[in-house]
Nucleic acid binder design. Structure first.
Lengths: 194, 194
DNA sequence: GATTTTTCTTAGCTTTTGTTATCGTCGGGG
DNA sequence: CCCCGACGATAACAAAAGCTAAGAAAAATC
């Protein structure tokens, strides 16, 4: 529980105990078994969760039926279907546990309410959105600027090597925007050629 | 000037005249001649502007020297180097006028100050970041899910055809993550094969 | 209105990626 | 303990994209 408080304070250091209590009552623990979904396309259950232990992936289902994994979640990161929460629409994406996963869950409606009632949470919402925007923007830029091989090298050099260590390679391939076969070739090139 | 007020109210409908005056005093008109820069890599001049008339592009300079255009701005959209403002660091990107352009400019520091002083602006900051996050996220997803040809078709089908009408094609190619030559081929394919 | 300059298309060739399929390995479940 | 399914490497082929260059078309400049 204090991990969620610590998370909030990373974004809003001034958050008081009293302010924390406004949210704390709405928080409940939850568990996902490996393979189980936190969000599934078509659902509308706007919830946010702090990932305490484990890992999840975010993926889309293409019309053809294949899955495309575009994001990973690890410890101490928020799990949410941002578009669904913000637009108030059913999910178009899926979030699934890659391993057994422990969460702290609360309803987005509660946070939305706190935006109106408590400036500290409104600030949290702003800073959180800004933080995610920076990350998403950097990744989009990388996608537009770099070749697949450069993107793989960039991932190696980045602080995100957790992804490479904890995620099956064919999902990393999706994440980098290439096919699994292609990533395997790129890895072979990078390994030999240096 | 009222266009900026209208912009703010699109995000915060409840913004009062008094609240608007808190920002209004800091706003100044500006003009960019075609080819002139609003932001240049290495600068640190955190400003935000509403684009009144004209168009701009956002581009990065690669080590090799070529430019990669990743975004376009048109009327009634905000112009800003979000990463530079948020991180308080010099710009790594460039924003340049594609045509003669009229702006309303204010310093990010003023807005940052208003985040502390006026809840309506903090809300504006949150909703603005959320709005941009949704857009960037959708574009990243498109980039990871769709082939270049599919992305071109998606652009045709989207509400962003302004880009195709008002921007040189080799910049659109960058925006879609392909080379100009490749986009030309894709267009030929789409035109013939329908 | 003529002349640069920029932009777009097309072509030929190379490189990379996508596709499909096979094989080896590893792990879990029966 | 064995078998099956998931995962990754590799190969062969097809398709697409990158690169270079040349020429046509359109725009901007003078």
């Amino acid at each position: 529980m204090h991990l969620l408080l610590a998370y909030l304070r990373r974004f809003v250091p001034t958050l008081t105990e009293a302010e924390w209590q406004l949210l704390a009552g709405a928080v409940r623990p939850a568990h996902l078994a490996r393979g189980q979904h936190f969000v599934q396309a078509g659902d509308y259950r706007p919830e946010i969760a702090l990932l305490l232990q484990g890992s999840c992936r975010l993926y889309y289902l293409r019309p053809s039926g294949e899955e495309r994994t575009t994001y990973f979640f690890f410890e101490n990161h928020l799990l949410a279907d941002y578009p669904s929460c913000l637009l108030g629409q059913p999910s178009q994406l899926n979030i699934q546990a890659l391993t057994d996963t422990d969460l702290l869950v609360f309803d987005y409606a509660v946070l939305r309410q706190l935006y109106d009632e408590c400036p500290a949470y409104e600030r949290f919402g702003r800073v959180l959105a800004e933080y995610h925007l920076l990350g998403t923007d950097a990744r989009l830029t990388e996608q537009l600027m770099l070749s697949p091989e450069e993107r793989y090298r960039a991932l190696l050099a980045s602080g995100k090597t957790k992804i490479l260590e904890r995620v099956p390679q064919h999902l990393v391939a999706n994440y980098l925007g290439v096919t699994p076969v292609s990533l395997s070739r790129i890895r072979a090139r990078v390994a030999r050629g240096r």
